[in-house]
Design a protein around this nucleic acid. Sequence first.
RNA 1: CGGGGCGUAGCGCAGCCUGGUAGCGCGCCUGGUUUGGGACCAGGAAGUCCCCGGUUCGAAUCCGGGCGCCCCGACCA
Length: 566
Amino acid sequence: MRTTQSLIPTLREDPGEAETVSHRLMLRAGMIRKVAAGIYTYLPLGLRILRKIETIVREEMNRAGAQEVLMPIASPAELWRETGRWDFYGKELVRFKDRHERDFCLGPTHEEVITDLIRREVRSYRQLPLNCYQIQTKFRDEIRPRFGLMRGREFIMKDAYSFDRDEAGARISYQKMYDAYSRIFTRCGLTFRAVEADTGLIGGTSSHEFMVLADTGEETIVYADGGTYAANVERAEVAVPAQASPEAPRPLRKVSTPGARSVEDVTALLNIQPAQLVKTLLYQTPDDLVAVLVRGDHEVNEIKVKKLLGVTALEMADPAKVAAATGAPVGFAGPVGLTVRVIADHAVKALRNVVVGANEADAHYVDANWDRDFQIAQFADLRNARAGDPSPQGDGVLRIARGIEVGHVFMLGTKYSKAMNAAFLDPDGKECLAVMGCYGIGVSRVAAAAIEQHHDAKGILWPAPIAPFHVHLLPLSQSATVSATAQTLYDTLSQAGIEVLWDDRDERAGVKFNDADLIGAPCQVVIGEKGLAQGTVELKERRTGAVKKLAPGDVPVQARELLGLR
RNA sequence: CGGGGCGUAGCGCAGCCUGGUAGCGCGCCUGGUUUGGGACCAGGAAGUCCCCGGUUCGAAUCCGGGCGCCCCGACCA
């Protein structure tokens, strides 16, 4: 493709709206343009990248036995009401009415639509297993879209849904997808890790997220330094501490702590370690108020609290409710004499003689003990894992890393097939529910994640398999000999199956070099007068900057080698 | 939704406090000189100053309301 005939509007300066590397570089390289918050147009270069990723995804999904379909973006409310998600999904689900006042939504995911299809079309166990996927634009009205393609409201997703005769079959389907995902992300040139994950709004029994490791990732993952355990921090289990403190209980005392609301304030004032303090956090559930106790240096994991309580919504109680329940302003809540239900993290059980809020302004108790001074309805794993915690599988201690979620695979069980009655007849003529799985890949997010992982100060360093072009051809003058060589090289490279972006603009060398580095094709072929006088052109590797002077005729073979093409 | 910031030429920004002519850099157009890492000279085009209302002889600037966008948080396959 010739630059003069393409829409590749590169920017010299950083756009003000972008902070993140991938967002900034995609805008500067002319790959995307914003239409509204979290909504982008893909320009030719951006689209080529998406197509590359989609091709890899298709090849691996097909290889794993999945079949491509295409479902509508708009779907009727009735399907969503069947599973209860019309009410449950919340504001993230964009809804609208058609001209007949019927409710519709834009699909953020397609369990309902595919399950509706399968329950109509599949009647016999002979038709299973089945795995259908699509690559399609999704819409989710994210509370806060950010980082360009990383968290858009409209984005491109590959979603697949498997239907099996039984649990055993579903596990096989799940494993096939897990393996396919590993191949896909490997082929995309990404460094990633599969981790145990929470199932969130999709639901189901278990899931793994595929995380691209990058410091800018929005997700926190923990992994065992001595083995295989890895999980999203939302999900990561914390081992129950081995033994209780041997300290003898001391008498409970109330102390004055004026203005000390935070753990830092109180520990500084009383000259104690955060681990000697127990935080009391009041949460509002749909039913009532609950107090959650964790050690002062630990963080509550709200997902774990929700699961323990069996509720779907949970938020910090507002100051008025805190005051009503404790009789004190926020910052002085404690379990002693508290009338709401109190649950506590396992770590609290092991503590003796702790500091807690006194349920009155500017006061705390010291030397409080849970079995003597206050009661705990239940102890459970309620906190986030931390670096240094023992691995729940005993394979070393946990470490923390940041990740970008590019894929998520779920074992759904019969959640959707039951709600929508997707049943088939088994060999005995008995009606059975299909056992489902679902599997997503954020295609547009993969592009952003690849840039987060592969860039330098000058621009993008595309892994060859997803690069918009393999070779950026850079003739440095408009002279007849240089132009003729460029034309010849363009033709021979193209014939060799190499995708070439030919910068035929009448620009200065510096401009071309800088744009080429920005756009990030893995190879640059530079044609200059001086080199040609010696009979050579240059083949440059973008990543390393390494240059080879070659006769033009040798370029295709050498370029293929550099690109890892056979 | 809470906190912070921004909205002025295609892009990046100044001007606003202290009301009176809308400016700079990049990009764009024309001509010339240049030509291996974002050239130079000369000339030129391009703005509902986010929107609505108010104050004022006069508003980019002051006041009120609204909208949009960015960042942090809550939230999130």
